[in-house]
């Protein structure tokens, strides 16, 4: 019988991260498909609360590594904890959550166990008795379905695809493992988290709406004027009223670093696309953005897409958006802000 292991660190408050819940949801689906046994491995300062609140009774056993050294997001200690759990669990499939912390670690751990790893998996299926997984290649441009005969197979799932279990929790019997915290594990010290200076946080992964601003906001307008300051006001006002997450095109971000007329709050972290992020939102509104392929590949996980552009023939017009409003974004977004403000 196949054995599936879900591995994850806990949050600093001892709870299970949202992404880990999704990984557990994925593993439960897979357990049913493969009629497999399911176990869980968790590391962190104190993991009992997480183990007691899995939201499922499908997990038959657990493993934990606890200690102060395992609280922070650091490759050496994360890899050591994860390795110890994987060696003890002896699973043939290891499911990991889509978090920066675990994605930074699992390929290294898989390598230590002479296994293989695949990240950003969006689907599982069984074909001719084999497990086949799906993932995007070439930055969301080509969808591939693949299978492997090598085990253990570490599979990091893409966020937003699987649902965390929400049933009654049955606490699995859990084995505590000890990991030697030697100097090699602590050459790196985590100092803290830095948030962007100045304005309020504009990137909100949980927002329903992604609002993308393109370089057009800072370009010469049909009346011959550049209106970057006005653009900044309109965009910030909209973000405040709509609670949406702010995305950008590469051109607009690059302008900022070149010192041209820019939006002061826009950083490279806002960039969506080939060399930016691929955020996940229900809806997306693109403004003054041309919709070139290297940008639009970052919209793969944005379901409904609307666009405001002066150019009826912009990239979005060609099957990339649901609705293209051929209009001036300055005028329309000002009206939108007025309507939002009145509500």
């Amino acid at each position: 019988m196949s054995k599936i292991l879900v591995v994850t660190p806990v949050e600093s408050d001892g709870t299970l991260p949202q992404a880990a819940g999704e990984a557990l949801g994925a593993a439960i689906t897979l357990k049913e498909m493969l009629e497999a046994e399911l176990c869980i491995g968790i590391w962190g300062q104190d993991v009992d609360m997480a183990i007691e609140n899995l939201g499922t009774d499908a997990v038959s056993s657990g493993f934990k590594v606890e200690g102060e050294a395992f609280t922070v997001s650091r490759y050496a200690s994360d890899a050591a904890a994860c390795e110890a759990i994987c060696r003890q669990a002896k699973a043939d499939i290891v499911i990991t959550p889509d978090s920066v912390r675990t994605n930074r670690t699992i390929a290294g751990v898989a390598f230590r166990l002479n296994g293989v790893s695949d990240t950003h998996i969006t689907e599982f299926k069984i074909e001719n008795g084999d497990l086949v997984v799906s993932r995007w290649h070439y930055r969301q441009r080509i969808l591939a379905h693949l299978k492997r005969s090598q085990r253990p197979w570490f599979i990091s799932i893409e966020s937003g695809v699987f649902i965390p279990p929400q049933g009654d929790s049955k606490v699995p019997s859990t084995e505590a493992l000890s990991v030697d915290v030697n100097d090699a594990l602590t050459r790196t010290t985590v100092k803290g988290i830095e948030t962007p200076a100045g304005d309020e946080q504009t990137i909100r992964p949980d927002a329903e709406l992604l609002f993308v601003a393109g370089a057009g906001w800072t370009k010469k307008q049909p009346d011959g004027e550049v209106k970057a300051a006005q653009a900044a006001d309109i965009i910030l006002e909209f973000l405040k009223e709509s609670k949406s997450s702010l995305g950008s095109t590469k051109s607009l971000v690059d302008l900022s670093s070149e010192g041209a007329a820019v939006l002061p709050f826009m950083t490279q972290l806002n960039q969506v696309g080939q060399t930016g992020s691929t955020p996940r939102h229900d809806k997306g509104l693109a403004t003054c953005c041309h919709g070139e392929e290297p940008h639009v590949v970052g919209w793969r996980f944005v379901n409904e897409r609307r666009v405001i552009n002066l150019d009826p023939n912009c990239g979005w017009a060609h099957g990339k958006a649901d609705v293209l409003y051929v209009a001036d974004a300055f005028t329309v977004m000002q009206k939108v802000n007025e309507l939002l403000g009145n509500q």
Binding site: R74, T189, I193, E194, T195, P196, I203, P205
Partner: peptide
């Protein structure tokens, strides 16, 4: 290092 939500994790390595 980039982490979730447009933030950075600050670490120091020996």
């Amino acid at each position: 290092e980039r982490i979730e939500g447009g933030k950075h994790l600050h670490s120091s390595c020996s």
